[in-house]
Amino acid sequence: MGETIVITSGKGGVGKTTATANIGAGLALLGHKVALVDADIGLRNLDVVLGLENRIVYDLVDVAHGHCRLKQALIRDKRFEGLYLLPAAQTKDKTAVNPEQMREICQELKKEFDYVIVDCPAGIEQGFRNAIAGADRAIVVTTPEVAAVRDADRVIGLLEAAGLNEPKLVINRLRPKMVRQGDMMDIEDILDILAVDLLGVVPEDERIIVSTNRGEPIVQERNSLAAEAFRNISRRILGEPVPLLDLESNGNLLVRLRKMLGLG
């Protein structure tokens, strides 16, 4: 029996979908069988980020309403052994599915997969309630911005109220240089406000934009700090004690990263 992990944030645009794709691909690279579920009905894009859009036949709503079997809707990602996607419907809205149906789908997927990772829509309404319904654990993604942190706090409260205790935090798009200059909240500030455990910190990386546009998860890249951060997050999900990336003095990699960002 596998485990369902919901990836949520409250605020939109902080990188939930990118995190879902990369954490899922990372777990698959580590040899696990992973199903990614796009719960963002009506605004689906996990399929785009994964480059699987053109292979969608059935979707989550079809499964919930019994128009097809779960297996028919699952898309296998040929680049990552063991990675599958259950896409969202594009033409319906959040009310097309209810929490009970989501719970059943997650339950069924868990029989087959080691990890079921649900990409939650932004907001705290029906879509959020659907996405968290079948979850065993939660990962909250935030960026080092006051508004994103505030929304993350709100969502952590709602998760706890729903019995998803001790969600783990991913801080995305951190810019070490701005932190150094005192222009961006640092990791300590964010943890101090949110009072949750940190799962990982992903530095800002332009190559993420390129990778999402191309539909190729960055996690397999060898010379990207963001990719390394996502790989580390996947390993921590498995329970491995991986130290945080040193974004400040990680000689070679950071120099390369700075060059890529045009800062060196």
């Binding site: 706090d153 709100r154 952590i156 409260g157 706890e160 949110l194 009072a195």
Partner: peptide, 25 residues
């Protein structure tokens, strides 16, 4: 527990919070 954004903890009499009261709470 921590009192998080959007949450309200109200007591008729005295209130002791063992935890943080976050912005927005």
């Amino acid at each position: 527990s921590h009192v998080r954004a959007g949450q309200i903890v109200s007591a008729a009499e005295n209130l002791v919070v063992v935890g943080d009261v976050h912005p927005g709470a």
